[in-house]
Design a protein around this nucleic acid. Structure first.
Length: 298
DNA sequence: CGTCCAGGTCTAC
DNA sequence: GGTAGACCTGGACGC
């Protein structure tokens, strides 16, 4: 079964599928599988009480087609894919500012949509799994969460969803220590999962646009395992771009690109202050411009 | 072998 | 409020 997805932003602005699928590292963690050139995404999503393998493939300049198994809840899955691609966001205010910046004018062709997970919970857990470890360790931890605790997709052996909070809450030390090898993060992850499963904690509420950024940041920082880096990263995936993600990759990468030998965090923040609520997005895009090959200019 | 550190965070000063 | 030291893990290094 095939469903067409119109690639237009909330304000009718263009959407670059490859730039979206390759927008950040967490986007390519399981259950997502992203084609190397960003032309396709495969993932496993819950729908009507089951799990489904979903494939999204570029189809023309401003569209994509969603391929799903016959009998799958097409409307529900398409809604989830649009949410992941952040098609409801209106990036025109950001593009208006970027257009005036020679360094960033290129983004107005459809960059700037950070692929998000179906749930805030998933983005939060994945972000915690990126802290203080190598990328190989992040992939191992998230891979174990999906392979061991996710819901199997109908008719797609070996493919599973990202686990529910309840499934993560019920997993024992043997899983977190022995299989995921999450180390000291294990108790953090299980505590957050248990609080969400028991409804003591509502992380999905952080997506509510009515909440001020400061309030969201405060709630995130209160979670175990979430410090300044994880907070800024999660907020970027929440579409709150005011903070810069400053870590051991972004700092040296910015230093290299800017050509300045010594740059402080405050200095970087100052350089992007004119982007105000989009400062973090502008910073991230500048650092990741070469993640996608640019189309030949005519 | 030990030491360092990777897209940090927590606790205790 | 700012800073040191510990922390799971595993791969890259130096000795």
């Amino acid at each position: 079964m095939v469903e067409r997805i119109e690639l237009r932003g909330g304000g009718g602005e263009p959407v670059d599928l490859a730039r979206t699928l390759l927008s950040h590292g967490v986007a390519e963690l399981t259950p997502n599988v992203v084609a190397e050139d960003g032309s396709a995404l495969e993932t496993v999503l819950p729908g009507s009480g089951q799990a489904w393998l979903v494939r999204v493939v570029a189809d023309g300049a401003d569209g994509a087609r969603m391929e799903i198994r016959d009998g799958a809840p097409a409307e529900e899955l398409a809604r989830a894919i649009r949410h992941m691609l952040r098609l409801d966001d209106d990036l025109r205010p950001f593009y208006a500012r970027a257009a005036a910046d020679p360094e960033l004018a290129w983004v107005t062709q459809g960059a700037g949509r950070m692929l998000r997970s179906p749930t805030v919970f998933e983005d939060l857990v994945k972000t915690i799994c990126t802290t203080n470890c190598t990328w190989a360790a992040t992939k191992r931890m998230v891979g174990a969460l999906v392979d061991e605790l996710g819901t199997p997709a109908a008719g797609a052996p070996g493919r599973r969803t990202f686990p529910s909070p309840a499934a993560m809450a019920e997993a024992g030390d043997d899983f977190y220590t022995g299989i995921a090898k999450a180390g000291y993060r294990g108790p953090y992850l299980r505590a957050i999962a248990a609080d969400v499963a028991e409804r003591r904690l509502d992380v999905e509420a952080l997506a509510d646009p009515a909440l001020p950024d400061a309030e969201v940041a405060e709630r995130l920082l209160a979670l175990p395992g979430v410090g300044p880096y994880a907070c800024a990263h999660t907020m970027m995936l929440l579409g709150r771009y005011g903070q810069l993600v400053l870590d051991s990759w972004t700092r040296p990468t910015y230093r290299r690109l800017s050509g300045r030998s010594r740059v402080t965090d405050k200095g970087i923040e100052k350089a992007f202050r004119r982007y105000r609520e989009y400062a973090g997005l502008a910073f991230w895009l500048m650092l990741t411009r070469d993640w996608v090959r640019e189309p030949a200019r005519t």
